[in-house]
Amino acid sequence: MPYPLKRLLAFPLVMFGVSVFVFIAIRLVPGDAITAMLGTESGLLTPAQREALTAYFGLDQNIFVQFWRWLAGVVQGDFGISTTYGQPVLRVIFDHFPLTLELAVLSMLLSLVIGLPAGIYAATHKDRPGDLAVRVIAMLGQSTPGFVVGLLLIFSLSVFFGVLPRMGSFVPFRQDPVGNLAQMILPALTLGTAFAAAVIRVSRSAMLDILSEDYVRTARSKGLSRRRVIWRHALPNALIPLVTLSGVEFGYLLGGAVLVEQIFALPGLGRVVLDAIQQRDYALVQGTILFIAFNFMVVNLLVDLAYAALDPRIRFETK
């Protein structure tokens, strides 16, 4: 069976597993669900109210029934009601997700645009000063946590230029593209540092491996120019590990957004998750994490499909 098809078939299975995991995880919270949901306010409930709520949320049913009800709701887009926002969870997600997505995509683009040429340059100038410089920068980028980069960026801006990035409110791209990008560029750089470093390292080492492959020697024996050997023969092969990396890193970007949004005070989904955890708003925690995991999985599925487009070996491989 072709590999992409296999991945496509495994997708719902893993998605189901993820749902079970999130469901069970939230059930493991100590104390009963009503208390967990309402926090200290639950003390104000009368026994009758408590019973009514228990019945309303189906908490008097056995765990399997509860799970099926919950899953049926999720499939229909009903993730429950957020107690902090007083709105349906899905609505909260849709309000805040665009920012996080833009942040992730922007930092991914930045990282690839910076990292790939740097990596190729380093590989083709192995052990020369340029290569050394690129490697040192990549090593520093890999070793400095994103949120530290963000803090240092804000610090240098305020100390050397006396300005602070716009915080608190958010300008959507559709309203004001320039203002939006001006606001997002620093967070995107912050979030992308580690990824850019990884892109440099992976593209450099992939390129180095490939340049010593037999088929590159064949290409050279055909009298192809150095440029043609690199761009036409080596690069398509080097993109394969980069695609893998991008898939994995997309998850890190979605996760890293939690920290970056916190530092730059951006109202994205990462902030929502954090608030939800601090407010013990479990329906929201459950919904957002499930939603992000789902997105991550879709991206990984796309990555697998992109693989098949890049590498004919995988298109037919049955493993």
């Binding site: 893993v14 939230i26 919270v29 998850g251 939690v258 954090l274 479990y282 992000i292 999985m297």
Partner: peptide, 19 residues
């Protein structure tokens, strides 16, 4: 492991801490 890997690392950690 696929299920665990379906969560971005820090979110999985946050979920566990939330619990």
């Amino acid at each position: 492991m696929d299920v665990l890997l379906a969560f971005p690392a820090i979110l999985l950690a946050l979920l566990i801490i939330a619990i």
